Amino acid sequence: MDNKVLEIFIPGPAGRLEAKYFKSKKNTSPIALVLQPHPQYGGTMNNKVVVETFKTFMDNDFSVCRVNFRGVGKSDGEFDNGQGELADAAAALDWLERENFDNSQCWVSGFSFGSLIAMQLLMRRPEINRFIAISPQPNVYDFSFLSPCPTSGLMIYGKKDELVPLEYITDLNKRLSSQKGIKVEFQSVPDGNHFFSKNEEQLVKYLDKYIKKETALY
């Protein structure tokens, strides 16, 4: 399966961005961008959760791209505390849309720090109509910019996340569930830690189920 995944370089605001890309053979296939965890804690686009998410989109016939933020792997530039990373994500989405101008749906997904960048991108790009935030950290990053959240999506987290006390997730759930017209689903992986080290299969199962349900509408 991996032989169809291309290594590409995308022109970004700080130079070129290293990325992996899979192009669906299906016309008007949905597209998805998958974002990496924190670069300063060893995060790359080859993180296990990012790769599994990428593959789950592939298996569901998406054209999908995962990207190394500036300063990671072969990407030019250096870490920019989130601002530059958001600009990188926007450049990657631009590229993905140009390659798939007839896409039927536009999804964004991110793991940990990547979920913050994904949600910030969501607020700026009205064409994004679904999101998956994996292991968000509302105790570290302020997610209050999500009011109102423009589209429905999935927040998935480990019940035993050692980096995020559960009450922060519960709070975020309350805040987002009071919004009219959108449905943000919160899904916990019972024994999952922040990295889903022993629960990847369970994580993939939930991702797959959500993607299938939401693409069936189109």
Rank of each mutant, 00 (worst) to 15 (best):
D2N: 12
K4C: 12
E7C: 14
F9R: 13
F9G: 07
I10T: 13
P11V: 09
G12Q: 11
G12W: 02
E18S: 10
K20E: 14
F22H: 13
K23H: 03
S24R: 01
K25Q: 15
N27W: 08
N27A: 14
S29T: 02
P30T: 08
L35D: 04
Q36M: 08
H38T: 07
Q40W: 03
Q40L: 11
Y41C: 08
G43N: 08
K48I: 10
K48D: 05
E52C: 06
T53V: 10
F57W: 01
M58I: 13
D59E: 13
F62V: 00
F69Y: 08
F69V: 01
R70P: 09
G71K: 08
V72L: 04
V72R: 08
K74L: 12
K74D: 15
K74M: 11
D80E: 09
N81P: 04
N81S: 13
N81F: 10
Q83K: 15
G84K: 09
A90V: 12
A90F: 14
D94W: 04
L96A: 07
R98K: 10
E99V: 05
E99T: 08
F101C: 11
F101A: 13
N103C: 11
N103L: 02
S104D: 02
S109R: 05
S109M: 04
S109A: 13
F111M: 01
S112K: 03
S112T: 04
L116Y: 13
L122V: 13
R125L: 15
P126F: 06
P126I: 11
N129P: 00
R130D: 08
F131G: 07
I132A: 07
S135T: 02
P136E: 05
Q137L: 11
Q137A: 12
N139T: 01
V140M: 06
Y141N: 04
F143R: 06
S144H: 12
F145T: 03
S147L: 09
C149H: 01
P150G: 03
T151L: 06
T151I: 04
S152F: 07
G153M: 02
L154F: 10
Y157R: 00
K159R: 15
K160Q: 14
K160G: 05
D161N: 00
P165V: 08
P165K: 08
I169D: 01
T170C: 09
T170A: 13
T170I: 14
L172A: 05
S177Y: 11
S178W: 12
S178T: 14
K183L: 10
V184Y: 00
F186T: 06
S188A: 15
D191I: 01
G192A: 01
N193W: 08
H194L: 06
F195G: 04
F196H: 00
S197T: 15
S197F: 11
K198L: 12
E201F: 07
Q202W: 07
L203D: 06
Y206P: 04
L207D: 07
L207Q: 02
D208H: 11
K209I: 05
K209V: 02
K209R: 12
Y210N: 04
Y210D: 09
Y210S: 04
K212F: 02
K213A: 13
K213N: 11
E214Y: 11
Y218I: 13
